[in-house]
Amino acid sequence: MTKVLVTGGAGFIGSNIVDKLIDEKYYVVVIDNLSTGKIENINKAAVFYGCDITDIERLKIIFRTEEPDYVIHHAAQISVQNSVSNPSNDARNNILGTLNLLECCREFGVKKIIYASSAAVYGDPEYLPIDERYSVNPLSPYGISKHTPEHYMEMYAELYGLNYTVLRYSNAYGPRQDPLGEGGVVAIFTNNLLLGKPLVIYGDGKQTRDFIYVEDIAKANIIALSKGDREIFNISTSSQTSVNELSEILNEINQSVIKPVYLPERHGDIKDSYLSNEKALNQLGWKPEFSLYKGLELTLRYYSLLYDSAEKSYA
């Protein structure tokens, strides 16, 4: 049975990938330090190790024990604000932690590593949609720390023959995304809708993003195990949705009329961003299967059931 090790497998995207791997009969090993991931997110069919990717000796023990065929790497420091306030910690996790994984992959003969990158590497777009040929110009330490490992992937491929695929995600959303802290706008809006709180929008709400459902991301990771060698791909819907439109769709699905509250625009926020997915379509044979409406409907249903269950447990 093919063995896949998933770092960050207790987190939002990682745990959804683990579920899909297990559905497709892979043997799955999860590594997560549970700093932001949750133990209840981990599929019970997976083997779990509580481990930080900055701990190289512990990582080597796990790799020696499990001997994974493939690695899907999602463990990361994901807060832009934290990367600005503590760039050393951001680099330690996202750059040095990834280097530790690459060393383990090299030493223990891993066939391929799939690396989760981000649209944050692109910075403020000069043209739309952004394709993979776009010059990288990150605006935060987080963007830098997500981009830097891409160069190491290429180097390890040239020096040691380690195969890789880099996936740059647009704005991910879906079940298990944390609405608190660095939660995405979909998770935050969903949480507020269900609690009857106003939807806070910074600026005029006309800014646009490219929202990709987490199950589409999971599918891209599975495909990348056998395709897209030594390439970088945008994983996106290749379409724009304004924050105002997002709030309207969520209200429609929820059958509510909670109006947004507009606050001043935040410094450094990008006005418009969406990624071309043409390369992923042509070379991976991947395309998003979930419309924004369907994805939001599934997301809202997930959180509604979660909140109902929590209320009953406290009743």
Rank of each mutant, 00 (worst) to 15 (best):
A310T: 10
D210W: 11
V30Q: 05
D23S: 15
S117F: 02
V80K: 05
Y302E: 13
C51E: 08
G174D: 04
V136M: 06
C104T: 10
N93K: 07
Q283W: 08
K287P: 00
S79N: 06
V28M: 07
S247A: 15
A46L: 09
E126R: 14
L195G: 03
H267F: 11
P149R: 09
R106Q: 07
L305Y: 14
S291R: 04
D55Y: 05
P125G: 08
T2K: 14
T208V: 07
K25L: 06
V84W: 13
A116D: 13
V136C: 03
I222G: 03
E265S: 12
T190C: 12
S239F: 04
G228M: 02
C51Q: 11
E150L: 00
Q240F: 05
F233W: 09
S88V: 13
R58A: 13
T148Q: 11
E265R: 15
D124F: 07
G14R: 05
I188V: 15
A116G: 11
R133E: 14
K38Y: 08
G8I: 11
K287I: 01
D308K: 04
R301W: 07
L34F: 11
A116F: 08
L194I: 01
V47C: 03
V166A: 05
S242M: 09
L275Y: 11
G50C: 09
N41K: 00
E265H: 12
K206Y: 02
D204N: 15
S276C: 06
D52S: 14
K206H: 07
N41T: 01
I53Q: 03
I188H: 10
E231D: 03
L59D: 04
M153P: 02
K146E: 02
L101R: 02
E40G: 00
H73D: 07
I53N: 02
A76H: 08
V4E: 05
A116K: 03
N191V: 00
L296E: 10
K259A: 14
A75V: 10
K279Y: 08
K287W: 04
D229P: 02
V28C: 11
S291P: 02
G11Y: 08
G50D: 07
Y134P: 00
G228Y: 06
E107L: 14
T98R: 04
I249H: 07
G50R: 13
I113A: 03
P264R: 06
N89D: 13
A224W: 01
F290Y: 14
T237H: 06
R266F: 00
Y262L: 10
Y262Q: 08
T7N: 08
T241S: 05
I217D: 01
N163T: 12
I78D: 08
T241Y: 07
Q177D: 11
H267D: 12
K219H: 11
K259N: 10
Y156R: 06
R64G: 12
V71G: 05
Y202V: 04
T208N: 03
E132Y: 00
R133N: 14
P68Y: 06
N171I: 05
Y115K: 02
D210G: 11
M153N: 03
M1H: 09
F48L: 14
I253W: 01
I22N: 06
I253L: 14
K312V: 13
L195T: 02
